[in-house]
């Protein structure tokens, strides 16, 4: 379990993270979403003790990361930024990490096998592709068989097969009772593996909810496409009922603020003929973008007055 309590991080005048509070529970995959620059990586670095919070505390299994006696057994992490010496072989890189915890060499070979890097284990990391580097990062994260897995943008550089592989892996890890926390700036990447969702924008918490709830609310606000015999009268009636209406090039109306059922009943009551009544599906991507966009718009610029 990861607990973040009132964490802020300022670099000089710049606010990276502001008063963040959330809990990441074991047993489910939790997605950590936000646009680029929202503070996801900073938050992860704060949890992992690489950066020191200006205020607040971040703990894993009830302790701050730096106080864990055997951190690799408790937390396996892969950061977005490269974190591997390019002159060393993949195997020696993992070996040096394993030795800090007295983890046996055969576990190194196991994780290499697990991520499919056995055949290049003795090659220098500098010759690796982005995807291979990503797999090596995942191998390092799994080395200590940790209770908690933290991955920053794990799908970066992976091919579709690799993305499928990591999705299955993460779901399995969560099913085993582990805490799985992964960040992404793409909703589509998260929705297929995550059950829980933490969304941040400009360093502040926007949502802490289940993916199902987020989807439900997003669809409730979805616009409806309406075509009728008399668009002007229809638009007038809908606007009067409190909806926002816009006229499309083909003469259809895009209505937001009213559900399709309400629009149909309203039209019937006013005796207006409808030719089409289509609830438009908002993709999660759009819902997420609009939520983070709002959050950004209504926040102060981040510079303390």
């Amino acid at each position: 379990m990861i607990e973040v309590r009132g964490v802020s991080k300022r670099y000089g005048e710049k606010v990276a993270v502001e008063d963040l509070t959330f809990t990441v529970q074991p047993g489910v995959v939790t997605g950590f979403l936000g646009p680029n620059g929202a503070g996801k990586s900073t938050t992860m670095r704060l949890i992992l003790g690489l950066d020191r919070p200006t205020e607040g505390t971040a703990t894993v299994a009830g302790r701050s990361y730096a106080d864990l006696p055997a951190p690799l057994h408790e937390v396996g992490a892969m950061l977005e930024a490269r974190a591997i010496h390019t002159g060393r072989s993949a195997r020696n890189h993992l070996l040096a990490l394993a030795q800090t915890h007295g983890i046996p060499d055969r576990r190194v070979d196991e994780v290499l096998d697990l991520v499919g890097l056995t055949h290049v284990a003795r090659k220098r990391v500098g010759s690796f592709s982005l995807g291979m580097g990503q797999r090596l990062g995942i191998a390092a994260a799994l080395l200590g068989d940790p209770h908690t897995v933290i991955l920053d943008e794990p799908a970066n550089g992976l091919d579709p097969e690799g993305i499928r592989w990591i999705r299955t892996l993460l779901i399995d890890l969560a099913r085993e009772g582990r805490t799985v926390f992964l960040s992404s700036h793409l909703m589509s990447e998260i929705q297929q593996s995550a059950e829980h969702l933490i969304v941040i924008g400009k360093g502040r918490l926007i949502e802490d909810t289940t993916v199902a709830d987020f989807v439900a609310r997003a669809s409730a606000d979805a616009p409806v496409r309406v075509r009728g015999a008399d668009p002007a009268a229809l638009a007038h009636a809908l606007t009067a009922a409190g909806a926002a209406v816009s006229l499309e090039a083909d003469g259809a109306l895009t209505v937001t603020g009213l559900a399709a059922e309400q629009i149909g009943e309203l039209a019937a009551a006013d005796g207006l003929v409808l030719h089409e009544l289509t609830p438009l599906r908002v993709t999660l991507e759009e819902a997420f973008m609009s939520r983070t966009h709002e959050a950004i718009e209504y926040q102060p610029t981040g510079v303390p007055v």
């Binding site: 006696p69 055997a70 057994h73 915890h101 007295g102 983890i103 046996p104 055969r106 576990r107 196991e110 994780v111 096998d113 697990l114 991520v115 499919g116 799994l142 200590g144 068989d145 940790p146 209770h147 097969e161 499928r164 592989w165 892996l169 399995d172 890890l173 085993e176 009772g177 582990r178």
Partner: peptide
């Protein structure tokens, strides 16, 4: 796609050969 994956499906932190808190 991962032949060695069986290793991960044990209970967390209690896989044989790796002491839970070393």
């Amino acid at each position: 796609t991962a032949p060695g994956a069986g290793r991960l499906t044990g209970s967390a932190g209690a896989t044989d050969g790796i002491p839970a808190a070393s």
